[in-house]
């Protein structure tokens, strides 16, 4: 099959499944206790993720973007139950993952995989590459040792690392190659959804492009669905079909990427776009928005709309009433009292 054929099949599949929701996150909450004193009593909670809802359609790439402390990583980790949620639901093919026992969850592990940020700490330095990639197969009791290594060879080839290196240790590889090994480790289990948490942010620009292209190819080949978590807007724009923007544990805007980038309706999204440096010295941006102040601590978030302390559109109501995430246009959700003003400004 040529690549074009694969692509055309993929597109028709995509079209037929276009509205099929693979994963739905509902009212997800994750609070971390703040402990203090001799007896380590809980004196407060960091609301890392506070009532977050979104869905991922089959075959799409959903970008999840926000600055440090916004809870995007925690969302990724709780969806896969790598850390236990405080509340909410995650429906995967209509099964609530949070209601499963740990044993039952094991069955879903292979379907929901993760690619990690740090290519250095995400591979066990004392294991050989073949054992790193085969780890999931072994845990799922798939095949015997020989069959597993056969698969390892196959997947190393697919991610572009020569299988002749399978007996090596991670430190013998470069950052980009290590990230490919991490991808092979997730892929070998034949997952449906891959959560990529800052999967390219630790890589050099030239290598980053290689890995992004690889992720793109693999999505076509294996009909993967991605939740792509990143702080880099340019990367998110490049890979995503739709984008979720988070700020201090809350979703502030969800839309398809063209709308997010051309017509952002939340002031935070707009500021984020405006802050992103453009690698072109001739682009002189007028009315550039530079937000004042720091991101507040998630342990003590501002009242009402959490963005109101830095927002140039803020009114008294913003400090009192928390705006709801509303669908203001089909498929475009925003949590702001004054999104209309911004829409007018955008015009």
């Amino acid at each position: 099959m040529t690549l074009a054929e694969v692509k055309s099949i993929q597109t028709t599949q995509n079209q037929s499944k276009n509205d099929q929701i693979l994963l739905e996150v509902k009212n997800l909450k994750k609070y971390f206790p703040i402990k203090a004193g001799v007896f380590r009593s809980t004196v407060g909670w960091v609301k890392a993720v506070d009532d977050v809802s979104f869905y991922i359609k089959k075959g799409e790439t959903l970008g999840l973007v926000g600055e440090s402390g916004c809870g995007k990583t925690t969302v990724g980790q709780t969806i896969l139950r790598l850390i236990e949620p405080t509340g909410g639901h995650v429906f995967y093919n209509n099964v609530d993952l949070f209601k499963l026992s740990k044993g039952q969850m094991k069955k879903y592990r292979s379907k929901l995989q993760m690619i990690f940020q740090d290519p250095y700490s995400s591979l066990d330095p004392r294991m050989r590459v073949k054992d790193i990639i085969a780890e999931g197969l072994k845990a799922a009791h798939i095949g015997n040792t020989k069959e597993r290594y056969e698969k390892v060879r196959d997947y190393m080839q697919r991610v572009g690392v020569s299988p002749t290196y399978m007996n090596r240790f991670p430190h013998e590889f470069s950052g980009g190659q290590r990230q490919r090994i991490g991808i092979a480790r997730a892929l070998v289990l034949n997952p449906e959804l891959i959560v990529a948490d800052e999967a390219v942010s630790a890589l050099d620009a030239s290598v980053q492009a290689q890995v992004l292209n690889l992720l793109d190819d693999l999505q076509q080949e294996f009909h993967l669905t991605y939740l792509f978590i990143a702080h880099n807007l340019s990367v998110v724009r490049h890979v995503s079909d739709r984008v979720v923007v988070m700020y201090l544990g809350k979703v502030v805007e969800i839309a398809n990427k063209h709308e997010i980038f051309s017509d952002p309706l939340h002031p935070y999204t707009k500021a984020l776009l405006s802050a992103n440096p453009i690698p072109d010295p001739t682009v002189k941006r007028k009315d550039r928005i530079i937000l004042q102040g720091d991101v507040p601590s998630p342990a003590n978030p501002p009242s009402g709309c959490r963005f109101h302390t830095r927002c140039w559109l803020a009114q008294p109501i913003c400090a009192q009433e928390e705006p709801k995430l509303e669908e203001v246009h089909p498929g475009h959700f925003v949590a702001c009292h004054f999104w209309k003003n911004l829409e007018d400004q955008n015009k």
């Binding site: 980053q208 492009a209 690698p279 072109d280």
Partner: peptide, 10 residues
């Protein structure tokens, strides 16, 4: 190569 490799925000 570097310029082509990086995704641009605009």
């Amino acid at each position: 190569g570097l310029m082509k490799a990086i995704p641009r925000p605009d």
